[in-house]
Design a protein around this nucleic acid. Structure first.
Lengths: 162, 162
DNA sequence: AGTGGTTATGTTATTAAATAACACGGACGT
DNA sequence: ACGTCCGTGTTATTTAATAACATAACCACT
């Protein structure tokens, strides 16, 4: 989130998330799922929640310890876990991670398909619930976001490989 | 395209593209646009056209010369160019590139939004024209493709950065 | 408590992906 | 011929991610 395509003010880069509440909810979710929110997972989630916008894996690595950096596998493993739990999303086009806006919780156990509006300039991301590409344009317009390129990729298994 | 999640037969990995025709069309498109389809650009496009499914940048680099590998910047620059011309697409979730199924041409100068079905198993990709996410599921079903995860990312400029 | 299986972490090393920076050369208009 | 733009060649570096293997924590069962 530190690459700016311009020089103007980016003070709108401020999202307010109740980090503690999220961490508690995550803990509850994990317990309910028979999973463990271990120290590195917690720390990784905490950092991502506290970051303005999508966060790079190596930024997590760098800030992991007060003293020095963490080892990459520690963080990558935590990131995979958090993603599988539906607590964070990976932004493919940025090689970055962002906290889910509507994370899975004890009552609501899903991992949903999210769509993102990603600003080239300030690096901020907006998670939107959307069902159609036309709808993306629509919501973007509503938010004053100018769309330049849309990526749509469905992963799965083809007919012959099933 | 060489990572297989399974051991079964992948002989369906065969797409038939008339490479020469595509190269000629690309040449014409470039001339019409006042751009130059230089040697490295041509070679890069040729390799991608000839490849079964999405191709990694480093695979292009390795096969660039009969003797040895190309230098990364040579290929990355060509890839950017081809993408901007609407001749190839970048697959963000794979860090790979694939020839556009309906490339821009002299008459039809667009660069369109494409959607892809990407098989985890054989690595093949299917480019589909689609307008809604529901439609992706729809077309996927029609093709016998089982969707596991959909990525939707819109890049552009937010309200404050415009 | 002891044992064995499973799951997560620690650690070292390596591989993969992409770009920065600068020098050189060719195309083209004037 | 001259300067300028654009593209390429080249060296080096940065950034991103994973492999492989050892160790430790957790849990269920006895």
């Amino acid at each position: 989130m530190t690459q700016h395509a311009c020089d103007h003010d980016h003070s709108h880069d401020t999202t307010t998330i109740n980090v503690d509440a999220r961490l508690k909810a995550a803990e509850a979710l994990c317990v309910a799922s028979g999973e463990r929110l271990t120290a590195p997972r917690l720390r990784t989630y905490e950092l991502i929640l506290g970051n303005n916008g999508p966060m790079k894996a190596y930024d997590v690595i760098d800030r992991f310890h007060p003293e020095g950096a963490a080892k990459p596998p520690t963080v990558y493993r935590a990131l995979s876990f958090l993603e599988q739990m539906g607590l964070i999303h990976r932004i493919e086009s940025l090689n970055a991670f962002v906290a889910c806006a509507t994370p899975a919780n004890v009552d609501h156990h899903h991992t949903h398909t999210a769509a993102f509006l990603l600003c080239d300039c300030c690096g901020q991301s907006e998670e939107i619930a959307t069902l159609s590409l036309a709808d993306i344009e629509h919501q973007a317009q509503h938010l004053g976001f100018e769309v330049k390129h849309i990526t749509v990729e469905a992963k799965g298994r083809c007919k012959t490989c099933r």
